[in-house]
Computed example of a mutant assay.
Amino acid sequence: MSSNPFRQARFLTSAHRIDQLPRDEGVEVAFAGRSNAGKSSALNAICDQQSLARTSKTPGRTQLLNVFPIGEDGQARLIDLPGYGYAKVPEAMRDHWRGVIDAYLRTRRSLCGLVLVMDARHPLKDFDRQMLGFAAASGRESHCLLTKADKLSRGEAARTLQQVRKELDLLAHGATAQLFSSLARSGLDEARTRVGDWLGLGSG
């Protein structure tokens, strides 16, 4: 994208339950991922903002659905879903998050796509597969960001991407994947184009 509409993203609210989200209209894209996959860093990099989404050295800080509208009318939104898979979170809270994420993916009419953030060194864990299954079952498109790609050699990264794409064909036909690094700022244009197309923001 020659100009980045995601720079207009702003924090609106945090929701503990689905009924606390903005009215179910317009279009929104959800970001999901394991607690240590770099989801907040990816959101900040895509939006070219340093602290839009909270990053922390302690995984599991995203404990609510955080809403980031883009532009004044709020009809295009990014939704940051609770990070999952972090062992130190109490079981009751994990169950609550799982229920909220499941209900959100099944019932939210304005949801048009899911960005699944995975550490390129540890892709497609059990919950990643579950999320892809949820999205496919509800007719949502999915795009996988293989983050921290800078930690892999070029050859390793290419092989990982090829393997993930092969598995996606079996798990969730139509799902796409790319390499991404918020640190090296690589893969940003591809990610912005994909999410921008879903939200109707254009691609440049």
Rank of each mutant, 00 (worst) to 15 (best):
K166P: 01
P90H: 08
D169I: 00
T107R: 14
K125T: 03
L132S: 02
G187C: 06
L146G: 10
D150M: 08
I101A: 08
A157V: 00
S186F: 01
L161G: 04
K39Q: 08
E91H: 11
D128V: 03
M93G: 00
A191Y: 06
D169R: 11
L21M: 08
N4G: 12
T193W: 07
I101Y: 02
D73K: 15
G38E: 03
L170I: 00
K148S: 04
C144L: 15
S14L: 07
A149S: 15
L170D: 13
W198E: 05
A135S: 13
L188M: 07
Q49C: 04
A76R: 15
S3V: 09
R121S: 13
L201I: 05
G202W: 08
V29Q: 11
S186H: 11
P90M: 05
Q63A: 03
L12H: 09
G155Y: 03
R7I: 07
G74E: 14
F68T: 01
L171D: 09
A136I: 00
T160D: 03
D19A: 14
S2K: 00
G133R: 14
G196L: 12
I18Y: 09
N66Y: 07
A9Q: 04
L146S: 08
L124Y: 10
D197G: 12
Q162K: 15
T193Y: 02
L201A: 05
P82N: 12
G71P: 04
L146W: 05
R54N: 01
P59Y: 10
T160A: 14
P59T: 12
A32D: 08
F6C: 06
F180Y: 12
A53I: 09
L105A: 09
M93H: 07
S110T: 07
A45M: 13
L170T: 01
G155F: 03
R185Q: 15
P123V: 06
R106T: 09
R140H: 14
K57N: 12
G139D: 13
R98P: 00
S203E: 11
Y84S: 08
V195G: 04
I46Q: 03
M93P: 01
E167F: 00
E167W: 00
A37Y: 06
M1N: 10
V115P: 03
S153I: 02
L114R: 06
F11G: 03
E167C: 00
L116A: 04
F6V: 07
P123Q: 08
I18P: 05
D126L: 10
F11H: 11
L132M: 03
R10G: 11
L179R: 14
T62W: 07
D189Y: 02
Y104R: 04
E167I: 00
A76K: 14
N44S: 12
Q8P: 01
Y104G: 05
T55L: 04
C144K: 02
L21C: 09
H173I: 05
T62V: 05
D150C: 06
N4I: 02
R54D: 01
L65M: 15
F31C: 03
R185D: 03
R7W: 01
V29N: 12
Q75N: 04
L64N: 11
T58F: 02
Q163G: 11
R23F: 08
V115G: 02
L111C: 13
S2L: 00
S110C: 09
D119I: 00
G71T: 02
L183F: 12
S3Q: 10
K151P: 07
L81G: 07
L78I: 14
L188F: 07
V27R: 15
S41T: 09
